[in-house]
Design a protein around this nucleic acid. Structure first.
Lengths: 151, 151
DNA sequence: AGCGGGTACATGCTATTGCATCTATGTCGC
DNA sequence: GCGACATAGATGCAATAGCATGTACCCGCT
């Protein structure tokens, strides 16, 4: 009998190439975009993700666990990110009436303004670092292949 | 005159979809692989990357700046990661003779053993979380599209 | 009403990351 | 050989991430 966990799997080169490419591409493009935001004196991308979800939500409010699902942030990191956003006046926390355990996170006017300001830089960065590299049909194909990975 | 930095760019949906897919896929697959390593009581993937580069290098030794280029780690993070690896006896640091500023990082026998042990788990995780989701021609196509992003 | 188990969120502690800067050495031009 | 600048690597400190656990509440069952 063999002991499967003690024996390396043969992994096809195309699979490892895809994985390494995925790691490299994400890191390089993310670093470039974060650098553009920082150069503009703006906060990191994680802040944008939360602000955008709130800005899109009805009445600009969501429960933390809803933000968590949408953004893939962990519970504890989100909890503290919300504190930072609140500290800068970009969101407010309110107690939830219906569910005594819950809070509402509500985006403020400053929060909406920040989201818009970040988008001006972010959209340009996306154009530069993604749009310039891929035509639309390539981008569609890429999105489709990536989606297979997350099912 | 318009002020380009104050105006959001229109970004084609296919481009944003590709970018969001890239972030999501990388995070989800990476988290799954890291979870497998942790479940096996093994260190994180960053350790593997360094150990593999060293194991492949002639005489099992590289200069930190060479590792830096190959792995995309930042200089300061790598410096401390090497300290951690040394603390566990997986690498050794030696002073470089030719270049008085430099050090050599040399993989130990324990380091090679750890790299091999991690590969048994990592290769299985890659098969599970990437190989199972993509056939080889899709993987090739994905790798090719991702490569366009990093030029 | 009271118990058991689950969900929502917060938090103390430790580990890692990021940033700025420091030390030491190398290189080039004079 | 000396000054000016670049490169290799380390490190103090502040910020963030990860982990474990805590608190408060909800729900279903008896």
């Amino acid at each position: 009998m063999s002991e499967p966990t003690d024996t390396p799997r043969p992994v096809p080169p195309s699979i490892t190439a895809a994985w390494i490419g995925l790691m490299r591409a994400q890191r390089i493009v993310l670093a470039a975009i974060e650098a553009d935001l920082k150069a503009a004196g703006l906060p990191p991308l994680g802040w944008y993700d939360v602000l955008l979800e709130l800005a899109r939500a009805t009445e600009g409010r969501l429960r933390p666990f809803e933000i968590e699902k949408r953004t893939l942030l962990t519970q504890y990191n989100l909890s503290r990110l919300i504190d930072r956003l609140e500290g800068k006046g970009l969101v407010q926390k309110e107690l939830s009436g219906e569910d005594g355990r819950g809070r509402w996170v509500v985006i403020t006017q400053d929060g909406r303004a920040m989201q818009a300001r970040m988008w001006t830089v972010y959209s340009r960065a996306l154009s530069d670092h993604v749009g310039r590299k891929l035509d639309e049909s390539s981008a569609d194909a890429l999105a489709g292949l990536l989606a297979k990975l997350t099912d």
